[in-house]
Each structure stands twice: as C-alpha cells, then as structure tokens.
Nucleic acid binder design. Structure first.
Lengths: 235, 235
DNA sequence: ACAGGCGAAACTTTATACAATCTTCGCCCA
DNA sequence: TGGGCGAAGATTGTATAAAGTTTCGCCTGT
C-alpha cells in the first residue's frame, strides 16, 4: 500500500520544539503538578525549556484550543478550571463518541492491534501495582486513545484527545477523596470484548465505564463557589 | 443573576485583529475564492489585511487546527484538500453529533429560540431567491450552528464548527455539477419538528438531511488521483 | 543534448526589540 | 485609619530583524 506515499507532513507531535513544550506542560497539568488556575508566564516557561517566547506562545495557544489552558487578553495563560457543567458536557460527549468508536474498533480488530492492547494493559497494571499515580492517569487516558486509533477515524481521534485531556483535569478537580482503584479491570474487560468482536458488550462496557468514572465525581454546582472562595483565600 | 460577573474573557471572536484575518480567510475559502491547494503566503495575507506576519501566522495556525488549512513544515500554509476518506469521516461525525444535538435543542426550545430560527430561515430563503450562492453556503452552515447553540452544549458546538467548515470545503470539492437547490426545505422541516418538540422527527429529518447532502457528493477514491493529476497539470 | 550540481532568491522559522496594557505598591487626603 | 489616586514594575501584544530551509534557475561537464 502506498498509504505513506506522501510524507504525511501533518505529524506535528514529534521532534518539534513547540511540541516538546506543549507535551511538557500537558504532562505537568495532567499529573497534577500544575493546579487549575495557575498562571503560566511566557518567560517562565521559556526559560525552563530554553526557548523564546515565540515558541512558548504557540504552544500555549494550542493548549488553549485543546481546552486545558485559558488565555485571557493582556493577562496571560492559566491552567483551565473546568466547571461542573463543563464536566458533564465532557462526559456526555465521551459517552457519545466512545460508544461509537468501540464499534469501529471491533470492526478493525487484528492480531497486531490485539498485541498493542495487551501490551498496554500490562503497562497499566504495572503502573497500578507500583502505585505510580501519575503514570496511571496518563496510561488510563492512553487506553481510550488507543481504541480511537484502532477505529481509524482521525476526526474522532482528534476530538477524543481533547476530551481526554479535559477529563484528566476534571477528575483531578472533582474526584471524591476516597479513590477506589477502579479503572484497570474495566479496561481489561473492554479489551476482551473487542477481542471477541462482541460489539454490544464492548459498547455496554465502555458506557458503564464512563458512567462509573463520572459517578465518582462530586459535581454539585455549589462546589464552584466553594472553589472560588478557596481560590481567593489561597491566593 | 451574576452570570456575567466575570467579564468572560474567552470571547475571542470579535474585534480582534487575528480574528478578522481568520474570518476573512475562512470566508474566502468557504466561498470558493481560494481553491484547495492554494498557497497562503504570510507576506501576501499580511499585506492584504495590513498586519504583520506574526498575526497572520497565529490566524493560520488556528485555521490549521480547524482542519481547513494544512501547514507543512518549512513550506508554508495551504488550503486543505480533504480526501474522500476525510469526507466520509466528517459526515459520519456530523450524523453522530447533530442527531444528538437536535435532541437537546428540542429540550431547550423557547419562544426566543423559535424567533431566531424563523428569522434565520427567512434570511436563508432570501439568499436562495436572489441566487447568492456564497451567502447560501454560509447561511446553510449557520443553520446547523444555530441548532448547536440551542442545545447549549459548548463542546458539541465547538466540534460542529470544525465539522461545518470542513463540510463546506468538501461540498465545494466533490459536489456533482448538477446542484439541485435542496437544502432550504430540509432546514424548514427540521425547524418545524423542533418547534413541535418532536424529537424523533427532528432526529430523523436531520439524519436524512445529512445523508442527502453526502449522497450528492462524488466520493470515489479514484477521484483523488484524478485531482492530483489535474493539480500537476494545472500548476 | 542532457544529467547533475552549484548558487541565489524567496520563504518560513526563530529570536529579539519595542509598544501597549495591566498589576502593584506607596502616598496622599479625607 | 481607610480609601482612592498615581507612578513604577512586570507582563503581554506586536513588529522587525536575523537564521535556516527549500526551491528554482543556471551553468558546467560528459
């Protein structure tokens, strides 16, 4: 197949200087090293990555488009603080898109994909075992992204990347303190259903998985006021 | 309600210099004044809008994220040329998202919204009557965007904006030469179903509307080669 | 006559300098 | 003592200049 006959110039995610910045900041946000509301100064980041403000600015604009950074005019960039309403929208969109994606993933299943799935599941299990919360969060998102890649639909994949990034932020903001280690088993079950080419089961499992994640969140609107107050007091 | 207690700084679409550029280029692309594959030089655009390359670059990056412009490293920005595969993905995504959106729109229907819908339909009809193809294309997209706004889901709205922009490009690329003036009636029917709060009908009408649009396209993969050849010969 | 390589021009990319805006802190006055 | 005004500092927005890459024409050698 001459699928790669064109050099495919839209591979902007690797070996790019602004991509390195973007991914670094993204990782910092998703791993909870940067809390929502934190100011992201251009000089500050530029000095860290040894880049000029031009590149930092580009990266921040991309992150703003992904929804995990807010840019306020003449004020700068801040880590986004999704509201409970945002959270509900994100999970509704994920239910819609991911239930469709698993269908396509089942259609596209192949030995190579099954290998990748299994490999990922072991990675995830290992991270969970050694209590590496940061890796767990990242890998949990990667599982969903992997299924989107299986589906072969680049548009869904792009949408889902945004939704996953926002979800991580949401989970970190609104997760109830008692966090049962829940996700891994679900992922394994979903993978099994995909391997068995059982569309209905895969769909149902994906939906209940997403529902359970959302159910673990505390999404009462008053929480927003509470948070804003905490913000004032903390600052 | 103090809903607007914050100045809502994320209103980046108005009275902004880069937004003016972005919207100008977008309009030029969607109204078929800029053909797919056309190079968008930074100097060129900057001179037209009286802006420096810095702002032009920002606008082009946003358009690239929306999928209607491709940026190739060290080569510049070009009007995107969606493949038939892209086209199918776009319409599948639209069916999925818009059938969900109409549901929510029915839930959110109110006299004010009905007014806006009616007003839009008359605008659309007038443009159609006076044979203003450019306005028709734009207004046709606006109808779908309006419903997304009714639904109140900002995430779906954002996704749909991207999909609509790409759709316009796709329609211009792959539409069969004989173009029956089809869309307006469909829009009116959908609006009626929404007004009657008939979810099932609204959903079904939206789906058949999108299906019909896609059916009017000529999406055979060989067309891509043909186009590429034409590109070489024409250049 | 034609293939291959050298070189200049045009463009994008990156960095830096300048201008505009906002924030903050101190001071003055009620 | 509390609040408002104002200037200094810091930060972002914009423009311009330097650096690197690609592309195209031309020239030379076979």
């Amino acid at each position: 197949m001459a699928a790669k006959s064109r050099p495919k110039p839209d591979a902007p995610d690797v070996s790019d200087r602004v991509s390195r910045i973007r991914e670094g900041v993204t990782a910092a946000i998703l791993e909870h090293r940067l809390l929502p509301g934190t100011k992201l100064g251009e000089d500050e980041i530029g000095e860290i990555y040894g880049a000029s403000r031009t590149l930092v600015r580009t990266a921040l604009q991309q992150l703003a488009h992904e929804g995990i950074v807010n840019i306020e005019k003449n004020r700068g960039a801040f880590v986004a603080r999704p509201t409970p309403a945002d959270a509900r929208e994100v999970f509704e969109a994920r239910r819609l898109i991911e239930s469709t994606i698993v269908d396509h993933a089942v259609d596209a299943v192949s030995p190579a994909w099954i290998d990748r799935l299994q490999q990922h599941l072991t990675e995830e299990r290992e991270a969970e075992l050694r209590g590496d919360a940061r890796a767990s969060v990242r890998l949990s998102g990667d599982f969903h992204r992997l299924i989107a890649e299986m589906s072969g639909h680049s548009i869904y994949l792009g949408f889902l990347k945004e939704l996953i990034a926002r979800s991580s932020l949401i989970i970190l903001l609104y997760r109830r303190h008692d966090t049962p280690a829940c996700g891994t088993d679900h992922h394994a079950e979903i993978a099994t259903a995909i391997r068995k080419r059982d569309k209905q089961a895969a769909r149902a499992l994906m939906l209940s998985h997403l529902n359970e994640i959302e159910a673990e969140l505390f999404l009462k609107d008053p929480a927003a006021d509470e948070l804003r107050l905490a913000d004032v007091l903390g600052a």
